[in-house]
Amino acid sequence: MTDEMKQQFTNRITHANAVELLVILYDMFDEYAKEAESGYADGKKGDDASKEALEHASDVLNHLRNDLDFSHDEELCKRLFSIYTYCQELLSKATYNGSYDTVQEARDLIKSLREAYAKIAESDNSAPLMENVPETVAGYTYGRTDVNEAEIAPDSNRGFLI
């Protein structure tokens, strides 16, 4: 994942509520899975970069699985747990068998979950999880191809006060 993509995800995370954060994690999984695809093109069995991307995708799934709260909706959490575990198995198969087909299957499963949570996020008006985060604005300045971000009214009092 490029530094620009990491910066975009970081910015989205700082302004996200709980449901939007799930959508972002699903997007991160998809980016890592797409990044791995090039190592399997033209009959290749996966290069080191693609295997590393699959590891990162598996880490995202592991994070999603470990953050399930079974005290709220146990049945839903059990289903999500099994989907995340199955997708991790598919990524492992791709790593060891050298076939991207299983990764595509995992991407399709996660994509359907992402679409469902994206619809929920549209109607969720809860506050962002992170507080005391400066607002950012992105726009074209001083050139047609350069996008610059700037903080609006940066607060010098960010962080913990003792």
Rank of each mutant, 00 (worst) to 15 (best):
D67A: 13
T14F: 14
T14V: 10
V19I: 14
S82T: 10
Y117V: 05
E151Y: 14
E31A: 13
A153Q: 07
D101G: 14
K51I: 04
Y140S: 08
E37F: 04
A106D: 01
L61R: 01
L21W: 04
R12Q: 15
P154R: 10
S71P: 01
E35M: 07
F70Q: 03
E105I: 15
S156D: 14
A153K: 10
G43C: 04
H15D: 12
A16Y: 11
A106H: 01
E115H: 00
E135I: 07
K6P: 01
N97E: 14
D108T: 15
D3C: 08
A41R: 14
A138C: 07
R65M: 12
F29N: 02
G43Q: 02
K78W: 04
P128F: 09
L21Y: 12
R114L: 02
I24T: 05
R107L: 04
D27C: 06
E4C: 00
R65Y: 11
N11A: 13
E131L: 08
I110F: 04
T95H: 04
L76W: 10
D108R: 15
S92Q: 14
A153W: 05
S112F: 04
N66C: 05
A53I: 06
A116W: 00
T2L: 14
N11V: 12
V137M: 12
A138H: 11
C77N: 10
G139K: 07
